[in-house]
Amino acid sequence: MDFRFTREEEVFRQTIRDFLQQELPPWWEGIEALGTDEGWAFYRSFVRKMGAKGWLNMHWPKEYGGMSATPMQQLIFTEEMAYHCAPAQIDLGPWVGSTIIVHGSDEQKRKYLPGIATGEAEWCIGYSEPGAGSDLAAIQTRAVEDGDEYVINGQKIFTSLAHRADYCWLAVRTDPDAPKHRGISMFVVDMRTPGITVRPLIDMAGLHTFNEVFFDDVRVPRE
């Protein structure tokens, strides 16, 4: 068995290296810089450039903005990004996008996938709660159906980059009578929706990455 990379794979690796050496500024030392305005501005520009190349979600089909990358191409990309401490897409939009590709409607794919693929849209993940931590079975944030909408009330905590996000991938309880590990639904919530309050949690280094997020009668349309 030949374990060497193919010529095409080596060319791909060099393409990534050339891009990173050209785009990463001398002051970049890792994702800790995202807690500063300068670091965030650089990150946003950087991920858009990667999105234009189809690299942000390269395993996605081309029709959704990926490049139908092989597992080996994904490995090479991950190696080079890690070696150069480059900021990969950290907003977890790829998690959301992959779920929408598999389970979403055609309308949801048209609405959300382009922004994730290009890096234009930022996402935060609404899982952890003050009384639940990362135990999703214990979440208390509720969504109650009201006509063509759901009304959401509750609180999330340690929500990374909620103050930067366009959308929240939100886990809420929709059936309080179901067993704790059931009766939970996922919502896409526009962070500009009335009733959402984001409060910063400043870490020991004085950086603002985490947040508390409060939902007070937030109305989300059925999709």
Rank of each mutant, 00 (worst) to 15 (best):
D203M: 07
W95D: 12
R182S: 12
L170M: 01
Y112I: 15
K111H: 08
I116G: 02
G51Q: 00
E107I: 15
W123K: 04
Q21D: 09
A171N: 04
D148G: 02
F42Q: 02
S160M: 08
T70I: 01
C168Y: 00
D106I: 02
D135N: 13
D166E: 13
D166N: 14
K109N: 07
V189E: 01
Q14P: 02
L92C: 06
K109T: 08
V188I: 14
L170K: 03
T15M: 07
G147Y: 03
F187Y: 14
R110W: 00
Q73W: 15
G104D: 04
D148W: 04
V220R: 01
A178C: 11
D177T: 14
S105N: 08
G54I: 00
I101Y: 05
N153W: 06
I76H: 04
R164A: 09
G119L: 08
S185H: 12
V102M: 11
V47P: 00
T78L: 08
E8T: 12
E8V: 05
R7F: 00
M191C: 11
D190Q: 06
H103T: 06
D177Y: 11
A33C: 05
Y150H: 04
Y83E: 15
D148L: 09
A41G: 07
L56G: 01
D190C: 08
V188T: 12
L161A: 15
S98T: 05
R173Y: 05
F158M: 13
R199P: 04
D106H: 09
S45P: 01
D177V: 12
W169K: 00
R48M: 13
L56Q: 02
R110Q: 15
T174C: 07
A33W: 04
A86T: 03
G54W: 05
A86C: 09
V198C: 10
Y127M: 11
G97C: 02
F158S: 13
V198Q: 04
F210W: 07
I157Q: 14
M204A: 11
G65E: 13
G154T: 01
M204Q: 11
D166M: 05
I31P: 00
D203Y: 10
Q140M: 10
A171Y: 04
Q89D: 13
P130G: 11
D18M: 13
E10S: 11
A143M: 14
S105H: 03
A86E: 06
A137V: 03
L24A: 06
H103E: 10
E122V: 15
G115Y: 07
A88S: 07
G147R: 02
L24N: 12
V218P: 00
Q21N: 09
F5K: 06
R13T: 06
C124Y: 00
Y43I: 12
M72I: 15
D190N: 11
S68T: 15
M72H: 13
I31E: 04
P61G: 09
E38A: 10
M186G: 05
M191Y: 09
I100C: 12
H163L: 13
E212S: 12
I184T: 07
I157T: 13
P179L: 09
I184A: 02
G51L: 00
L136G: 07
P25M: 10
M191G: 05
S105R: 06
H208F: 05
